[in-house]
């Protein structure tokens, strides 16, 4: 059926969203096909939740259109929402209902034929590991189990589009692993978009990444492309003895090409700690130490640290550079 409408299960077409005067999303467009698990990556306040809420039909955008399986979500909400499963950022379910009772309620609301309801719900409970808590009140479940109920309700009626807003936030490491496995298992034959600010999660789960910052898509590419791009970046940490030398040191460092995100802080021992990112392939440490020594600056420490993915990403986002560079890489 989907093929006759369009190749992609999700099409987000120049979506903008304003909250009052605040522009939360600006001309965001993307498409997601069947079988893809797409990571929606961005720091706090980037607009991930806003975009996913629009995608789930919670509220309409200020402008732009959303297509689910080729159907305009806000023209034919009833039909389009049938193909949709949504896990909100904070999973708030009726605390006074029991797990099984709640999922059967959801099945009714989603229009699962009454003959199939029981089996359908049973299946989803098994898939999400909920069978043993079927008769427990949702309000008494642990956060991890509530999250599973959230995923189970999203899966009811076999939606071909899954929208998951930070599915692993707030869970302990073991639960995170379980939920990730679950997502991987349910990802086949669907289009899945999940938001996160954990980079490793994207590499583990997704085959494609969308990066969003301040309401705009910064970059989009495969996980491989993202990793290749990130690989040759590193951070150099150094310490100098005297505060008086800080200004000169910083000025000297700025003269090097390819040094970014220069930061200096005073440590508790009155030493100055300086760190910066570099994109150079060659090792800058020798050049830097030589230059500083020539200028009578007492360098007491210099080391290379591989960047954590978070560092790089946040640094990139701040400067908005991934977009330009990734263009060259793709």
């Amino acid at each position: 059926m989907s093929a006759s409408h369009s190749d992609s299960l999700i099409r987000f077409e120049s979506i903008s969203k304003k909250y009052g005067n605040f522009q939360a999303l600006q001309n965001v467009s993307f498409e997601i096909r069947e079988g893809e698990i797409v990571g929606f990556l961005g720091p706090n306040g980037a607009g991930k939740t806003t975009a996913l809420r629009i995608l789930a039909g919670f509220f309409p955008p200020s402008s732009g259109r959303v297509f689910i399986r080729g159907l305009d979500l806000f023209k034919y909400p009833h039909e389009a929402k049938r193909a949709l499963g949504y896990l909100p950022e904070s999973v708030n379910l009726y605390p006074d209902m029991k797990v099984g009772e709640y999922l059967r309620f959801v099945a009714k609301l989603k229009g699962v034929p009454s003959r199939e309801q029981k089996l359908h719900v049973q299946n989803k409970m098994e898939l999400c590991g909920l069978t043993e808590v079927e008769r427990r009140l949702i309000g008494r479940l642990s956060k991890g189990y509530r999250q599973r109920v959230g995923i189970a309700q999203a899966l009811i009626s076999e939606p071909s589009v899954l929208v998951l807003d930070e599915p692993t936030t707030g869970l302990d490491p073991q639960q995170i692993t379980q939920i990730r496995e679950l997502i991987r298992a349910i990802g086949h034959h669907r289009a899945v978009i999940l938001s996160t600010h954990i980079l490793p999660e994207v590499s583990m789960l997704c085959n494609r990444v969308l990066m969003i910052h301040q309401g705009k898509i910064l970059a989009s590419g495969t996980v491989g492309e993202l990793e290749a791009f990130l690989k040759d970046r590193e951070v150099i940490h150094m310490m100098i003895k005297e505060r008086a030398h800080m200004e000169i040191a910083l000025r000297l460092l700025r003269s090097f090409p390819g040094i970014e995100d220069l930061k200096a802080t005073e440590t508790s021992r009155k030493e100055i700690s300086i760190s910066f990112e570099t994109t150079c392939d060659e090792d800058l440490r020798l050049k830097i130490s030589k230059l500083l020594v020539e200028n009578d600056i007492s360098l007491i420490e210099i080391q290379r640290v591989p960047l954590t993915l978070e560092d790089i990403f946040l640094g990139l986002l701040k400067q908005g550079k991934f977009a330009q560079r990734s263009g060259g890489h793709v």
Partner: peptide, 14 residues
């Protein structure tokens, strides 16, 4: 208050 409407609004319901 409990924010339980969010999910409800994403179901195929008018």
């Amino acid at each position: 208050r409990q924010e339980t409407l969010e999910i409800l609004f994403t179901y195929p319901l008018s």
